[in-house]
Design a protein around this nucleic acid. Sequence first.
DNA 1: CCACAACCCTGAGGGC
DNA 2: TGCCCTCAGGGTTGTG
Length: 274
Amino acid sequence: MPELPEVHTVVTQLRRELRGRTIIRLAEWNTRKMLQPTPDILARIVRGARVRGVRRRAKLILIDLEDGAAVLAVHLKLNGRLLVQKSHKPRDPYTRAVFTLDDGNELRFADSRKFGYIRVFNNARELNAVIDKYGPEPLDASFTAARLADLLKHRATKIKPLLMDQSVISGIGNIYSDEALFAAKINPRRSAKSLSQIEVRRLHRAIQNTLRAGITHHGTSDQWFVDTHGRKGSHQNYLRVYGRSGEPCPRCRTPIQRLKLGGRSAHFCPKCQR
DNA sequence: CCACAACCCTGAGGGC
DNA sequence: TGCCCTCAGGGTTGTG
C-alpha cells in the first residue's frame, strides 16, 4: 500500500524516465472510473504532449505536461503500479492503461482492484483546489515539532487515525503510522491532545526518521508494491510492529497486539507504547 | 468535532 | 484439492 516513501520512490524514477518524453497515445482496458474525467478526454489531452516533470504531493504522483498547464494526477491507492517498460516486454496481468512513449517504452498503469485512478487537471487552479486540502508535507523543513504540536492540540481524536488523516498531515498511511508510534513509544489509542511536549517532539522525530528509512529502502513491498522497473523495496525487512501481531516486541519481548482503530488495523506493543 | 459504517474491488487466507 | 466465506485497505461520503 503505497504511502509517502513508496510514492517518492516511484516519482524519483519516473522523473528520470519520463522527463522530455512525448506521449504518443493512450490505450485502456476495463478501467471503470479509473480514468477521469473520462478516458476519451484523458486520451485527447495526453496525445502528443511532452512531459515537463514529475513530482509528488501527499500520495499523489503529479505528471506535468508541456503545451498548456495540464497535469496528470495518479493515485496508486492499495495495489496500483506504474511501470516503465519496453513495449515488447510482457505486461503486468492487471494492466489497465498504457501510455506509448516516443522512446520505445510504455508507461503502464496496473491495478488489480481498480481503486487507483489517473485524473487530468486542465490547469494549476483546478489542481490546487485538490492539493491545497492536504496537510503539510512531513519531510518539509517547515514541518517542525512546533507545527506538529499545533496540529495535535485541541484534537480529541486518537493519534493513529489522526496521523493517517491526509488533511492533517500528508503521506502517512497504516504502515508508517504504526512504525512511527512504536518508535515514539506512544500508544495508538491516545488522544492527540493528551500528548506531552516531550512526546510530540519524540513523535515528530519518529515520523521523519520512519519515512526517511522507508525512502532509503525504496519502500515497503508488503505484497503488491513494486517500483517502475517492477522491483520490490526492502523496508518490509525493517518493520518492527506492522503486520507482526503475536510476535515479540523487538524492545521488550511483549507480544505485539493488533486492534481496530478508525476502520484500520493498528499494531503496537502494549507495554512500551504508553 | 468525533466515531463508525458503507462503498469501491478482488486477492489472499482460513475453515471445512 | 477445492469450494466458500470473510477480510483488508485509502479515501470519500453519509449517518448518528
